[in-house]
Design a protein around this nucleic acid. Sequence first.
DNA 1: TTGCAATCTGTACAAACGTTTAGTAGTATG
DNA 2: CATACTACTAAACGTTTGTACAGATTGCAA
Lengths: 217, 217
Amino acid sequence: MNGLTERQRRVLEFLRDYLRRHGYPPTIREIRTAFGLRSNRGVVDHLRALERKGSIRRLPGSSRAIAISGPDGENAEGAGRAKAYPVAGRVAAGRPEEALEDGNGSLLLDERLFGGKGDFVLEVKGDSMSGAHIVSGDLVVVRKTASCETGSFVVALVDGEATVKRYVRRGSRVVLEPANPAYAPIVLSAGNAAASVVGTVVGVIRRYPGRGRAFSR
Amino acid sequence: MNGLTERQRRVLEFLRDYLRRHGYPPTIREIRTAFGLRSNRGVVDHLRALERKGSIRRLPGSSRAIAISGPDGENAEGAGRAKAYPVAGRVAAGRPEEALEDGNGSLLLDERLFGGKGDFVLEVKGDSMSGAHIVSGDLVVVRKTASCETGSFVVALVDGEATVKRYVRRGSRVVLEPANPAYAPIVLSAGNAAASVVGTVVGVIRRYPGRGRAFSR
DNA sequence: TTGCAATCTGTACAAACGTTTAGTAGTATG
DNA sequence: CATACTACTAAACGTTTGTACAGATTGCAA
């Protein structure tokens, strides 16, 4: 994506910033002023370089006709490649602890990642699924499904509590198995109204604590 | 927000559509043509009405200086809660297999998740980090960092090959440890130019195979 | 009927704007 | 040492573009 010089990078950054703030791109003279230049030519050179390197697209001869074609450009063009996933709350992967609580806000993720309808996000608490590499603090992306495949991970409501388990069908019985020997499997009998599968886990997102993270759910 | 006539509503819709498609607003003459008008005045009247009713903002006398101030306007103004992460390619978590190859495209993720600068995404191949719950096929979000904390996961270039390991400082030595006893640690000596740390792993994204996934990298 | 707002035609103009030519300086490439 | 690219000054050119003026038509409310 890059092969830009420091100066070109700054011009591109200015273009993005201006577009974000004003809703339309700047004129060449505005860019000139912003960088303290005394001639249009300098700006023209930068724009030509940015266009040659694919960072922007221009309509020759037309005012303010600068389109940013990078990642931010697609964003501005609103190709809408990001999908909003409602954050439902926390889910216990050990003992069922907390039910699905009302989370505030939603999470934007690339629609190509899990692109389905009716998906939502839950935070995992507990370590009953650590054997399957799902650990406490992970966010699981859940798809509301009517049926489940054996072996897949599901979010189930057991006695009103949400929990992540592996879905295994054994004859007429359905067993929700943890992936940690310290926990016991849960048998889902046919007449058991106290337990129901909410959906299938289609993805996991883990964040490692670092400097200045901000997502608070 | 509304109080717009049918005609004004359509003009506003056209403005939104044009901005989304081109990345910059249209000229008055472009609007005129789009609506099959034969005079600028009609367009000017509509724009004045839209501005009076608060749907758009304009900079008088300046080309294409139309900013949409409704809900879509905020979108165009780039409240931009999704951030684009370049996809660099694959990274070996077992033996170094493939170098960072040029991946096509980028991945949109909520900026609150990993919100940093210069981050990128790699797909993990191999199982040397399975003890740390990072498995083959996972996408790791990498932040280019100058320094690393002991115990954190890093992406390192060893002999031109990218690999995920745990970063451990032991006195003057730096050791890149796998999280799988089947693999051997890599010692990073001070004069070893063949090995360098690219960045810190700040996140992991896992996709479980399901019906009709589309992200192909 | 009168008045007002919305919608539009047709012509014209001055300013804003992108572009070009000519030239300078610095740095990197081979 | 020539070539190429980046980054800029200075001045001038031609057109795109917003705006204004002088109307016309329709519908709706006082």
